[in-house]
Design a protein around this nucleic acid. Sequence first.
DNA 1: GCCAACGTTGGC
DNA 2: GCCAACGTTGGC
Length: 168
Amino acid sequence: MAKKYWLIKSEPDVFSLDHLKNCPDQTEHWDGIRNYQARNLMRDEMQEGDEAIFYHSNAGKETGAVGLSRVVSESAYPDYTSWDPKSKYYDEKSSEENPRWVMVDFKWRAEFPKLVSLQDMKKADNLDGMLVIKQGQRLSIQPVEKKHFVEVCKMGGLKASEIKALGL
DNA sequence: GCCAACGTTGGC
DNA sequence: GCCAACGTTGGC
């Protein structure tokens, strides 16, 4: 199956692109997704090798796309924080036997030389229809068209040769 | 910190 | 199955 393109949102105070970069093997599991639409996308659509724009939400002037990551788990697997009573992501309706939520692993790939702010994306000519610039779009995992994905990379200051080298 | 958007819950 | 109340997201 052809790889897919995504945008993943994270509040940088909670988990930033730099956090991901500093993880062992620059890889971390993406836990805590508690929205059915986002879960279904992860569970049914995401697979190893998929590319994701890393977006910082709720970050004042820094709100926007900051870099790239990639799915490195084969596919989605149960989010074990959902049945851990000590976790803030605990959900009493989820259990090890019957997990309600899933997660995937993401690996750091690139940091944009410059922030692509939400405003920049809204103003861009070539991003019509991109979900993140729609009003009230709160989904934390969004599918992105490849042409939009590449356009955001360009706006972030990646050179054509670098984009090619990333296999995009 | 405000509040619009919108997802979820639960009474009926 | 409707919909009001409530909770959360996230831009500003």
